[in-house]
């Protein structure tokens, strides 16, 4: 269930109300998001599309608690993250959000397994349990045999799969993906999209993806367009609200 007109959807996982984000560039004020509303139910695969500079990444950052809005609220699973302190927000991110970036953003001096383990270092899990969860996550993305490889020893597609393993290893509430196929060839991009679809379909993960790629949008349950700072449904997809 996805809504963009501010209508409350009972039991929605993500609820965004009257979200505004302004940037200042010199003396000029740029309104990126203007009173944006959004409701997303658990387990949905939602794609955000729009031209460059339309505010897709800004929206994703606000949903993930990486940035703060000028006004409005973001509530996830009952927690209003826009009123949280920086420290509480860090802890919330560790428990609830898995991030996947266009440039993978792996730490080059850590192996694939150590990169995947990073979010678990903040938990109380012991070393053995952490190793077990890392192995499971790497197996899920099909990279068990690359655990000890460094990012420079992996292809782009493999690096992105390691990033996905890192995003899911702590079993977050939802995944935020910023152009996850933007730096990949078609074949690798399809593999990543297959993986994200499987995570949503088979594991019930809520996936929010920002993309320019129509093939990525095709995998989504719902495609939303950012237009003049608000979200609108793609006419080709069925709005459910």
């Amino acid at each position: 269930m996805v809504s963009v007109d501010g209508t409350d959807i009972p039991g929605s996982l993500i609820r965004v109300r009257h979200l505004n984000k302004q940037y200042r560039r010199g003396s000029e004020t740029i309104d990126v998001l203007q009173g944006l509303n959004l409701d997303v139910g658990a387990g949905e695969f939602v794609a955000f599309m729009g031209p460059s500079g339309s505010g897709k990444t800004t929206l994703l950052n606000l949903l993930g608690g990486l940035d703060v809005p000028t006004s409005g609220s973001v509530t996830v699973d009952g927690d209003e993250i826009t009123s949280m302190s920086a420290r509480r927000l860090s802890s919330w991110r560790a428990r609830h959000v898995g991030f996947i970036f266009q440039m993978y953003n792996l730490i080059p001096v850590l192996t694939a397994a150590q990169n995947v383990e990073l979010p678990l270092l903040l938990t109380r899990l012991g070393a053995a349990r952490r190793r077990q969860q890392v192995a499971t996550a790497l197996a899920l993305v099909g990279l068990s045999d690359r655990a000890k490889h460094y990012p420079r020893q992996l292809s782009g597609g493999q690096e992105q799969r390691v990033a996905i393993a890192r995003a899911i290893v702590a079993d977050p509430t939802f995944l935020l993906c910023d152009e996850p196929t933007g730096d990949l060839d078609r074949k690798s991009g399809d593999e990543i999209l297959d993986l994200l679809s499987a995570l949503s379909r088979d594991h019930g993960k809520t996936v929010l993806i920002v993309t320019h790629d129509p093939r990525a949008a095709e995998r989504a349950d719902v495609v939303l367009h950012l237009d003049k700072g608000v979200l609108v449904h793609d006419p080709a997809t069925e709005p459910v609200a």
Partner: peptide, 14 residues
């Protein structure tokens, strides 16, 4: 990379 650490949940003080 420091941004990534913060993204995955490392606090500023961490």
């Amino acid at each position: 990379e420091l941004g990534v650490l913060k993204t995955v949940g490392f606090a500023d003080t961490g």
